Computed example of a mutant assay.
Amino acid sequence: MTAAVLAPRVRPVEGLRQSVSLSWRTLVQIKHNPMELIDFSLQPIMFLLLFTYVFGGAVAGSPGEYLTFALPGLIVQNALFGTLNTGVGLCNDLTKGVFDRLRALPIARWAPLTGRIVADVVKQAWAMALLLGLGAIMGFRVGTSVAGLLGAFGVLLGVVLAFSWISVLVGVLVKEPERVMVFGFAVMFPLTFVSNVFVPTDTMPGWLQAWVNVNPVTIVADAIRGLLVSGPVGSPVTGSLLWALGILVVFGPLSVRAFRRRA
């Protein structure tokens, strides 16, 4: 009997258990390949130090003022770029035949995808905590409350969970892991940089502000700023969650369908 027949008969609860097991498999590999965690650590540290101390004085008058504005946006930017690792890792597993072995087992077809995403969401939580910790050393202070801090983690990880499905779809469709990174530079790079992550929207030309205001990255950055520092919370948080839900509804089924065809 083939896995294609067995997979649909797997109960949802069993599928969730399998997803957790596969997530743990991915996280345990960090012991043997610490570079996976360094990827989620070194780049955000470099971005935070670079933008704060090189551009902070020119943009906001002082590195401290710029840190308060930019850190929430840098957390969002780093998280979205981090989702590319999900697609790269998945493509590597497919290329190396990992899923050929899993296909012989009676597991839910969506479990490997969900397991990979959940593991990377855990790594994203580590990266966010790392940036907040380094930011605190540099002088950043949460200006709201513990509830705001926890809310920021929740909103960001929810958005990361949704955006990861875009990376998963790309990782399944391409044949080489490097193509996922090409997609990142072609799509994620302009999406994150043409936003209010690094500079306030009102400093941009009017025609560009129209795009920046509807850019989902801007909306998520505003939500994280509101939850961590100050400012509107309800509208940007709602917008962020709606974007996340829309992306999940569209790219989740597309990713599972593409995965079934390839694996």
Rank of each mutant, 00 (worst) to 15 (best):
Y53M: 09
L131E: 10
L48K: 00
L157F: 08
A186P: 01
P236H: 06
R179W: 12
L228P: 00
P236Y: 04
R25W: 11
M46Q: 11
G184A: 12
V59C: 08
N85K: 08
T68A: 14
L50K: 07
R101P: 06
F183D: 09
T68M: 08
G171P: 06
F259H: 12
F189A: 15
M35K: 01
P12V: 05
V174L: 09
N215W: 10
P200D: 05
A111R: 15
T26D: 15
F183T: 08
L134I: 15
G239I: 07
V250C: 10
V256K: 10
R116F: 02
V20S: 03
L67I: 09
A70W: 03
L191V: 12
G226A: 14
L50R: 08
S145I: 01
I30T: 12
A244R: 02
F251A: 03
L248D: 00
Y66V: 06
F189Q: 12
L149N: 00
M128W: 02
G15C: 05
G184D: 08
A79T: 09
S19M: 09
L208Q: 11
A111D: 12
Q209V: 08
V88H: 07
F69K: 05
I38F: 13
G56C: 13
W126M: 04
P236N: 07
D202H: 14
I45A: 15
L173Q: 13
L157C: 08
A186M: 14
L50D: 06
M181F: 11
E65K: 14
L169P: 00
G135P: 00
Q18L: 13
I166V: 14
T144Y: 01
G154H: 02
G115K: 10
M46S: 13
A111W: 14
R109E: 14
Q29T: 12
I219R: 01
L90S: 06
V180G: 12
W165A: 01
L74K: 00
W165C: 05
P177I: 06
L105E: 05
L134H: 01
V122I: 14
L71D: 02
V59P: 10
V155F: 00
F163S: 07
V217Q: 02
V142T: 11
G148D: 00
Q18M: 14
L169S: 00
L71N: 01
L113G: 05
N85M: 10
C91P: 00
L254P: 09
L241H: 06
F99D: 10
S164Q: 13
L132R: 03
L208F: 12
W243N: 04
G171Y: 05
V172T: 12
A136G: 15
R17D: 08
V217M: 03
V229F: 11
V180F: 12
D202L: 06
V10A: 03
N33T: 15
V199L: 12
G73I: 03
V180W: 08
G115Y: 09
K123F: 08
L132Y: 02
L49P: 02
T83C: 15
W165L: 04
L71A: 05
P200M: 09
G154E: 02
G133M: 14
V194Q: 04
V214Y: 09
T218Y: 02
M181W: 13
P106A: 04
N92M: 06
V194K: 04
V159W: 13
A258T: 11
T218L: 02
M181A: 15
